[in-house]
Amino acid sequence: MNTRGQFLSSRLVNDSLISLFVVSTFPPFRISFQLRMWDWFQQYCPWVLQGISMVYGMIVRIRRKAYQREWLRPKHLSRPVVSVGNITVGGTGKTPFVIWLAHQLHAKGQRVAILSRGYGRQDPSKNLMVSDGKGHVKEWRVSGDEPTMIAQHCPWALVAVGPDRFRLGQWVLEQTPCDCFILDDGYQHLSLYRDLDLLLFDATDVKGLCGVLPAGRLREPLDSAKGAAAFIFTRSETLSSIQPVQTCIEKVIGQSINPIVLKMVPKQVRHLVTGEVQPLTFFSQRSLLVVSGIGNPRSFCDILTGCGLEVGEEIRFPDHCAYGQDEANLILEKIGQSDQDIVVTTEKDAVKLREWFSKDDPVWFVTTDLEFLAGEEHILGLLDRAGVV
């Protein structure tokens, strides 16, 4: 077995918390030990994880309450701030939504600055301007994969990464003017005042709302969602598909919500190196090797199978995986050993994989769009009332 990657068939990866942790890393014994320990506690001592969850949940609840009662005061930037966040671990589609939101504000004539922490970058302690709004984008290793992807989709936007979002916003304003800020993954960043809090939920993940870390997948107790201005449900196939998650939220927060419902729509596939574009039907008669290093790999497979494509096998890497030659070799070796002769990956992974493959390698990535099933006018109205546009 490769020392930096571990292959798992999609049939063997369940939807438990383990599947949200990495299934490949380096060195491999470290994550293997962590998974074995977590599995052991789940099986024999679940009360230990539940006890830790109670303490952790109490701490984060007290912290949020301290800001709500103004025992602690958030700091204000001199421009409106819109936060896009979630309260579960695993992906909920924040990056595509940030891109959509930036395009909406740009279309209204706003000079947009996007603030992110830049997970997985080489030096997370420093502020960095990923994009200056003039088409100059920093390399993904120093900026992080998601900020790089956002900058590529929004070449006119300022994109900056840093550990403290308030200081980062001030630093950006010292460099260049802007009209508003988008705070990427900002719901827990309470030290910065937000004019609008947008909270995303995966409509397919009602289990994710059933417990706080480490016993469950919630970053904080579900009742903290009460502070959101809008509830956005992603990965929804129909309006009715959000009902289980919506009901769970409404029961906990004690109020009805006006849902904004989104669907992830795959557009086309592009060759990783050449950029050649093909329709999704190009692979309709092929068995695919699916490669991903994202927070919710199951959702990517669901998108592919929903288009009638056949997912043969998977290689799942950690979210924000810093791909190298070893990972590329693992992918190519797997092609040679299996019936799958086509590799399909995500656009986020493509940012980091491109340099390790050639134009002759059968590696493609899927591009997606957001489609509103409900609530588009509602969210645009919220932006207007918050003074963002």
Rank of each mutant, 00 (worst) to 15 (best):
R121C: 01
E174L: 07
R270A: 08
S16F: 02
V389D: 07
D123I: 12
R217H: 09
T25I: 01
S116V: 11
L77V: 10
D15L: 13
H76Y: 12
W47Y: 08
C154A: 09
L192E: 09
G57L: 08
F7D: 11
D349R: 09
A160I: 06
G162T: 04
V142E: 14
R69L: 13
F26T: 06
T346A: 05
Q104I: 02
H76T: 13
R79K: 15
L213V: 13
K108I: 00
C210A: 15
N127H: 06
S284G: 12
F357I: 00
T3S: 14
C248I: 03
P221C: 09
K263T: 13
P362R: 06
L272P: 01
S83W: 04
A102I: 10
Y187T: 07
C210M: 15
A228F: 07
R194Y: 09
Q243A: 13
Q243M: 11
F29N: 11
P259C: 12
R69G: 00
S10R: 14
G91S: 04
L8T: 12
I257H: 08
S116E: 09
K138S: 11
E220G: 03
R30Q: 10
T95Q: 10
V48C: 12
R11I: 06
G90I: 07
L105M: 13
W140V: 10
L380P: 05
L272G: 01
I379E: 00
V277I: 15
C248S: 12
D339S: 09
V130Q: 08
R64C: 08
F26C: 01
G216I: 06
Q68E: 14
K267A: 11
I150L: 02
S32H: 14
D302A: 07
E355S: 14
I249E: 04
V55D: 01
L199Q: 02
A203N: 03
L8A: 14
N14I: 05
V212T: 13
L200C: 08
I31C: 06
G162L: 07
D384V: 11
T234I: 03
M264V: 10
V290K: 07
E220A: 04
L20G: 03
V273S: 07
V290E: 08
I182F: 02
L190F: 14
G91R: 05
L168S: 03
V159S: 02
V161M: 10
R270F: 10
F283M: 14
F357M: 00
G109M: 01
